[in-house]
Structures are given as C-alpha cells and as structure tokens.
Design a protein around this nucleic acid. Structure first.
Lengths: 129, 129
DNA sequence: GCTTGACCTCAACCAATGTTCAACTTCTAG
DNA sequence: CTAGAAGTTGAACATTGGTTGAGGTCAAGC
C-alpha cells in the first residue's frame, strides 16, 4: 500500500457542468442551480468555484420533474431524493417510485371525488369543500 | 304611471355585505374582495362606498372553489362565471358544470398517464416530460 | 496580452393566490 | 348624537417555482 485510499468518495465522478446537466435533463441552467440550492442534486466545486455534478444528476432531475407532475413540492422532492445515493440499490429507487405512485393515486382519487360530486345531480353551489 | 320603472336592474337585490358573503361561502373576507377584484362576483356600492352583493354571490364563490379544485385559475374561472347571470336558465349552469367535468377528466387523464409511466417498469429517470 | 465563452453570486422580478396592516370612513344601535 | 363595529384602500408580505440581469471571475485559444 503506497498511497492512501479514499474509500468514501471518488471526486473524479463529479465531471458534469451545469450546462451538461441542463442539456441532459431537459431543464434550464437556472433550474439546475435552483435544484442544487434546494438539495435535489449535489455538486462538487472546482478550484474556481464552478459546479461539477456526478453523472446521476440528470436522472435525479428527471425524476424530480415526474414528482412535480404528480404534485410534490420541491421541498418534498428533496426529502424523497435525499434517500437515494449513487450507490443505492434498485429497491431504494423502487421505493421512490412507490411513493410517486401513491401520490398520483391520491391526487386522482381526490379529483375523482370532485368529479363524482359534479355528476351527482347536486346543484353546483351546494358542493362542499 | 306615476314613478319611472327601472326594468334593467333592481338595486335592492344587492343587500349582502362582505361579511355575509364570506360567511355563506366559507372563504375569508379578504378572499371575497379578491374575487370581486377579479370579476368572479359583482358588487354594488352604497353611497358610502361599501360593497353590497346580490344573493347569488356565495353560490358563485362556492362554484369558483370547486373550479379551483379541478385546476382552473382565477382568471379562467372569471371567464367561465362571466357567462352566468342571476337570470341565467339552468342550462347555463349546466354548461359550467360540463366545463368543470371536462377539466377534471382531463386532469385525471394526465395524472393517469404519469401513473402508467410509473408502473411501466421503465426506469424512473427515463420517463419523459 | 486579450478576447471570448462559460461560469459565479446576489438581487430583483414574474405569476398566482391570497393575507395582513395602517390609516381612514361609514354604518348602526342605543 | 355618538361610540364601536364593520367597511374602505393601497401597499407590503408570504409562498412556490423559477427566470433574468448586473457585475465579476476563470480558463483557453489566438
């Protein structure tokens, strides 16, 4: 053993620029920075203070966008994604998926409820919140 | 004919105060004023500049809230409600109901689409917007 | 050495949907 | 008639999810 081995983190995986992540995830650079500030993705910094993202960043952002579609706030998405690391096993991702499915079902359920109210023959202004 | 007859508008139906409307529709007074500013409800003014609403105001606001639940913006709701007057026939209200039903169905459809994507076995980060 | 492009931060702005506050005015009941 | 409850306005604030712009830095190529 000649050199110290860094077990915890290989900095070299942090290679993607903001531009790269924006392109590959399909959002604006400003959004990438916004998501980083809110903890959805993590970035290392170069000596010149520039962000460098790991290759999982675009994926995380894409998942975040799906999560937004089902109605999670950025804060909630941050919490969900904080459970996932680059070395997470697939079942961790599966739980994220489950969470999104549950959320989507709930939204659908509530909308369907409203829809049922609307079709109930009840007069519109008598539908309660 | 001794007195001029006002055929167009009987001001005397505008009797409800902001407080009345807020109570009967279940929203805050500030919201009632907000909705008035955005044209969801109309108010006459007393000589002292206070709002007086017609009895249909709470109903309009309740419908507006249902409309919000199905995803319409205040602007859109204003447009929808502008079709309805106190003397509208029931079928005008029915069309409002239809519009809300259509909107709710559309939202449900889109959510269901996302849900299907989530269940498709596809990896999360490969779901497109 | 200089220009160019990509990046940085921080602050301001946008839209939607209200709420809250201060400073007044009006209405109503006794 | 007068006190107190209730109404008025406009501006500022809050929250969510970003975008835009000014002013500054950094690295590379000519």
């Amino acid at each position: 053993m000649t050199a110290p081995v860094r077990v915890t983190k290989d900095e070299s995986v942090f290679t993607m620029t903001v531009r790269d992540v924006a392109d590959q995830s399909g959002v604006a650079e400003s959004a990438v920075r916004f998501y980083e500030r809110h903890g959805l993705v993590e970035a290392a910094r170069t000596r010149g203070n520039q962000r460098r993202f790991a290759p999982d960043a675009p994926c995380r952002i894409k998942v975040a966008r799906v999560a937004q579609r089902v109605g999670l706030t950025v804060r909630e998405i941050g919490a969900v994604l904080s459970e996932v690391t680059p070395d997470s096993t697939p079942d961790v991702w599966a739980r994220v998926g489950d969470r999104l499915v549950a959320e989507a079902r709930e939204r659908i359920r509530r909308l369907q409820e409203t829809l049922d109210d609307l079709g109930s023959g009840q007069r519109l202004c008598e539908i309660d919140d």
